[in-house]
Nucleic acid binder design. Sequence first.
DNA 1: TCTGGGGTCCTAGGACCC
DNA 2: TCTGGGGTCCTAGGACCC
Length: 393
Amino acid sequence: MKYIIHVDINSFFASVEELQNPNYKNKPIVVSGYTKRSVVASANYIARNYGINAAMPIFMAKNLCRSLVVVTPHFNLYEEYSEKFIRLISEKFTNNIEIGSIDECYVDITNIVNKKNQPINIAYQIQKMIKAKLGLNCSIGIANNKFLAKMGSDYKKPLGITTIWKNEIPNKLWPQSIDNMLWIGKASADLLKKHGIYRIGDIANEKNKKVLEKLLDKNWLVHYQHANGGGSDTLDYSKSFPKSIGNSETFLNDTCDFDEIKDKIVELTHSVVRQLKYHRLQTKTISLKVKTPDFKQYNKSLTIEHYIDNYNLIIGIVMRLFQENFSQTTLRLIGVTLSSLVQNKELKISSELFDDYRNNDENFNKVSEREIAEKINKKFAKDIITIAEDKLK
DNA sequence: TCTGGGGTCCTAGGACCC
DNA sequence: TCTGGGGTCCTAGGACCC
């Protein structure tokens, strides 16, 4: 039997901003972009008292609270705090840590639990340490597996510590709405409610197995087991490389202006290629995604035969995907995503070979518009790589 | 004649998380 | 005044191979 805790920093971005500017401390603040199309990324508890939540459009939040302070995000700062928070736990307690996201982690404390140091004491010490060293509040869930630990950290915020042991499941888990259940999102919750399943206890009920099987995908059994207190207690300690790298942006106003869209594609592609190289990865699947003014999303992707990390090839493929599919479409959002990533120790081609045009606008335009956008297709991209390989011989 | 079955890869879309 | 952006994982259908 393992002891797993889940640590979740409360209103992470907003709290970090409060540390930078103590004036914010007693005011309702949100971290958000400042354009008319931005949404709330994080709200402090004063703002939440006005009914403001993450993902709420900023204009709506301002309507709810006239004195709302809108702070633009500082992601590098959040990254620094995130690393500090993980490092603190690993230095002072254990490095059996699975990083969940920028503001949360699972910790397997099985090896450090003993008669004197019970799980609840350890959780209390961690909470106190993070407050003392970083000035941040966190909520902690304690259980025998990851699912229950995370449900526990959600149970009481801010500064909560909640155990969900096996015998506490009927009282702490089953009465909750299925809206609170991890991995049951809005789509599944709406569907289940239509069939009379409202509480986590209903998912746990053996009599509902048939309904669950019919309504949910083949993961229904995992949900059933979670609701009954089962779930994985194995942490993933590996810091693996990303499976995809994407960048997208909503236009300030919907647009079908080619120059504006092209500039955005260039910017987004530069950004994803920079990240690709930073991680020393290569891609062979390049995707373009757009959102139209009616909020419909469309994806177009192309998988080529070789792994590449070359800007000119990638932008050529992105431009081709755009021109073949959306050149006459009014767009709300556009995004570029690279996937099927491998570490570039398998690199066969010098990534610099085709980078002559990078940062050279005149050449870039010539290549992207006249040649690449028109001529790059799967075969062309392949040919370029073949030529590159020949040159290297 | 008129058509199997298994496997893999690609594309597109969607659910879910923060 | 209308609704972000970063991800992961899964599925279904079609192409293609044996």
